[in-house]
Design a protein around this nucleic acid. Structure first.
Lengths: 114, 114
DNA sequence: CGCGTATATTCGTACTGTTGAATATAAATG
DNA sequence: CATTTATATTCAACAGTACGAATATACGCG
């Protein structure tokens, strides 16, 4: 399939967003904000299997959002662009606004939360 | 399935990102930045079918990113949170950085683009 | 009410993404 | 070189998403 340059850019833009479109990957990125972290630590922090952590990290690596550096047998992942966290924070702000406007939804969450 | 309050927030955060994870929806949001726009206009600008435009707008509506207002038979969609565009701009900046670092990839795009 | 226009929804299909289990690789260590 | 530890990859099942075509709804108008 042929695609224009502009279309390709929008595709990549969307793929970047897609990398953020999973709760576990969001948690990973915020965790990485505190510094380079081994895969095992991330898996433990998120309460997920090691293979699953590797899979999510592979997505973030593919999209260029993190880099991996080996030290002995352990691999430290590192956040590459702090701006990604800024973007996530902006969206979190939007979410907060939305929930505040929409009382019913907040209440539903409260129900679930207790 | 039981989910904690915090987990639910991250789920919603991810769903917000997911709403942005499609080239056509990104284009729609940028188009809406210029002001309220009827569905038909959006479909035409993006070169997609009307039903497809409605489907994508439904996603944006579900995530609370746009509102719809009827005027006669036409429905005007409106951007609700400008911060969403800021977030998209940040990510576009990240994309630009990434492409500049990675010359090979840029060149591949150039190949495709010509 | 019947018709036209604008938008929404439903449906089938093809594609993509997420997961755990199992297996593979890579490095350190004895 | 065999073993252990940390990470990566593959696989199969399942869930979710995107699309066009067809159909439904909603409004205005005569």
């Amino acid at each position: 399939m042929k695609r224009s340059f502009v279309e390709e850019i929008h595709q990549l833009h969307a793929e970047l967003c897609q990398a953020l479109a999973d709760p576990k990957r969001i948690l990973m990125l915020y965790a990485l904000a505190k510094g380079p972290t081994p895969v095992g630590d991330l898996a433990e922090q998120l309460g997920i299997r090691q293979s699953n952590a590797s899979q999510h990290l592979a997505v973030l690596r593919d999209r260029g959002l993190v880099t991996a550096e080996r030290s002995g047998t352990t691999v430290f992942y590192q956040l590459r662009y702090p701006a990604v966290l800024q973007a996530l924070d902006l969206l979190r702000g939007v979410l907060r606004e939305r929930l505040e406007e929409n009382q019913g939804h907040v209440n539903r969450l409260m129900e679930i939360a207790r």
